[in-house]
Design a binder for these strands. Structure first.
Lengths: 190, 190
DNA sequence: CTGAAAACTTACTAAGTAGTAAGTTTTTTG
DNA sequence: CAAAAAACTTACTACTTAGTAAGTTTTCAG
């Protein structure tokens, strides 16, 4: 029935990610996934025995995507400004679909998460902050970016602006999010 | 059995607020509240027929607290710096108890909220942003605060830093949140 | 002190949750 | 093509969820 062996598993991951970013980890069930993919409940359990396994793999997938982003930004000829813009663009894409950042979604459920997910989430946050910090540090050195805080603190400020910004966009409208992005780029590139 | 008539209702509200800020709206049940207060499940339903009624009143209570904060800051002799600090202190108090901001918690569940709660949440966000914006505008006029963005945008930036900051504190530790606060005050009061 | 209203408890329902065991179909591989 | 492994379905369990109806206790006002 499935076209290729890994199709179903990938579809579950994709849909799980979408549900988490749209509704939150505790607001979707295996039945929701099964219904959408026109498979049975137990088929989801076949690929991901427990919901915590699914969550852990979703966070892991997100981690891998950020590693890919990091690699793609290592290619020569990309300005620091473009690198920051590429980071911002990820949030903008979410925002346009009414989704929020995985970190923001799962982060607000932090105290109810299984240990495995907590660990992976911490890893993800450190990865993202490290990525932005590196871009900021290099950009400042090259004279392409300006900011008065340490690269570490500035990366936290930018990430929190964006993560909370996409959430705010669902409540008060997208123009606030757009204003955040414009302001951030203006601060950094003068 | 209850000492005073309104005690139970107030306790439910208090506990509901605590649960939302600690675990999230979808991660606590009426049974959790009943157990903690040593009453029966149906007693909670007596005061709040549906969970959405409870949520709406919790958000409303939060709104009233911000109105109180706004009034208390209207008294003469409070510097703009102190007003901003008072706002930040609210988040710091949450952070120290491992809680997150109500807006951040409920906001990440936005798409699953009953309409009544969505409306109240929007009202709350506008109230908070308006409060900070006013303080910023007046502080700039008096020469007590410095920032290059519009008061509106700056209020959004500050609020998103704090709201996401308290969430981040649960994941990577409180020192990141402290750094955010220090940085915000330094930016504004230079 | 008494009646009425408020604040509960008891006992239940219907629906949804994650999860499992056992059997069936499909796909792959030697 | 046949055996085996992978990918499912069927059918079920045990538990939790919000929510309700009816009866009981407590509080309070006249």
């Amino acid at each position: 029935m499935a076209a290729r062996p890994t199709d179903t598993k990938e579809s579950i991951l994709r849909l799980g990610m979408e549900f988490i970013q749209t509704y939150g980890y505790h607001s979707f069930s295996y039945a929701d996934i099964a219904k959408e993919l026109k498979i049975k409940n137990a088929a989801v359990h076949y690929h991901f025995p427990g919901k915590e396994d699914l969550l852990a793999e979703i966070v892991e997938q997100y981690i891998q995507r950020y590693h890919e982003l990091a690699r793609s930004l290592e290619k020569p000829g990309i300005s620091s400004r473009q690198k920051i813009q590429a980071f911002i663009n990820r949030y903008t894409a979410l925002c346009e679909h009414g989704k929020i950042c995985l970190i923001g979604s799962v982060g607000s459920d932090y105290n109810t998460l299984p240990e495995k997910a907590k660990v992976k989430l911490t890893e993800l946050v450190k990865l993202v902050l490290g990525l932005v910090e590196k871009v900021l540090r290099e950009g400042k050195k090259k004279g392409e970016l300006t900011f008065s805080e340490s690269a570490r603190i500035k990366s936290i400020l930018i990430m929190t602006n964006l993560a909370a910004g996409v959430q705010l966009a669902r409540i008060t409208g997208q123009q606030d999010y757009t204003a955040i992005c414009n302001s951030l780029m203006k601060q950094l590139t003068g």
